[in-house]
């Protein structure tokens, strides 16, 4: 510990380095300590509040969570819903993005701006008014209803990001493909889509992860018939000790981490911010 004495460090590192070092340490603590705390709590058998370190470590809550059938089925539900929501969203949004990137028409800007609106309202208010409509169309408590809520949440990303990617494709590149003998559909499949793939991939990841962690809308529309990991989380936190919540949170993180890892080469500032332009 002697060599961690601040005074000693200050003189050893020099003023500039010392400040950088301090700032970096604060940043790391701020950023990672909640996460580390969650990990620590997840492997605690007994934890009482004023203490920082749990009183007893173990896997007790893991076996509890994994043995709860409703929790396990909610994980399955979450993935099915996320996959379907992403797929449907792609089918709806990519053609829309293509149209917005290629054709000039009246009201184009207004339309693009309208995608932002769903994100501008307080979510709960939006869900309540949607709920009224959903009752009318018998969508309450149905799989389709939940999917619609999830899609509405990510509509903006799913249109804007692919649109930015599509707009970076030059018309000549598509025309050259027509010229060498590709039909419009072949051009889209072999040239346009592959070239826009980074943008579309990032948007899909957003949608997929967004759907995995969406809880408010799912609760309102799907409860109690449809349970996802995110809605179960509420139950776990309110009914069981913090340690159970920590275990569940860790399980929730795994798919997100996995996906981010798999698609890390697509997730670059370019492909994310290149798309966010209104023009």
């Amino acid at each position: 510990m002697k060599y961690l004495n601040p005074n000693r460090l200050y003189h050893a590192l020099g003023r500039r380095k010392f400040l950088e070092f301090t700032l970096f340490t604060v940043f790391l603590l701020f950023f990672y300590s909640p996460l580390m705390n969650t990990v620590m709590l997840a492997f605690a058998n007994v934890y009482r509040v004023p203490a920082v370190i749990p009183q007893q470590f173990g896997f007790q809550w893991w076996s509890f969570i994994l043995s709860k059938e409703s929790l396990m089925s909610s994980i399955f539900n979450s993935f099915v819903i996320a996959i379907v929501a992403t797929a449907v969203s792609l089918i709806i949004c990519v053609p829309a993005a293509y149209a917005l990137s290629r054709y000039q028409f009246r009201g184009r800007r207004v339309l693009m701006f309208s995608y932002l609106l769903t994100n501008a309202f307080p979510k709960m208010g939006l869900y309540v008014s949607m709920g009224i409509l959903f009752y009318k169309f018998n969508l309450m408590g149905t799989f389709a209803g939940v999917i619609i809520v999830h899609i509405i949440n990510t509509l903006m990303f799913m249109v804007w990001l692919p649109m930015g990617a599509l707009r970076n494709i030059h018309r000549q590149q598509e025309e050259a493909a027509r010229d060498v003998g590709a039909t419009p559909l072949q051009v889209f499949r072999k040239v346009t889509l592959p070239m826009a793939m980074p943008g579309i991939a990032v948007a899909s990841i957003f949608t997929f992860l967004g759907s995995l962690e969406e809880s408010e809308g799912t609760m309102l529309v799907g409860f109690p018939q449809i349970n996802t990991m995110a809605t179960e989380m509420y139950g776990v936190i309110s009914d069981y000790p913090a340690t159970a919540g920590a275990v569940f949170a860790l399980i929730l993180i795994v798919p997100s981490l996995l996906i981010l890892f798999l698609f890390r080469k697509y997730i670059k500032p370019d492909s994310v911010f290149g798309g966010v332009k209104i023009k």
Partner: peptide, 28 residues
């Protein structure tokens, strides 16, 4: 255009950046 016996070279952006030179040439 795809049915015509013509071939066009544009001022720029002729090639498809996600394909190698060979794939570009072989496409047609």
């Amino acid at each position: 255009p795809e049915k015509r016996p013509t071939a066009m070279v544009f001022q720029s952006y002729n090639l498809w950046p996600h394909m190698t030179v060979f794939e570009n040439l072989a496409f047609g």
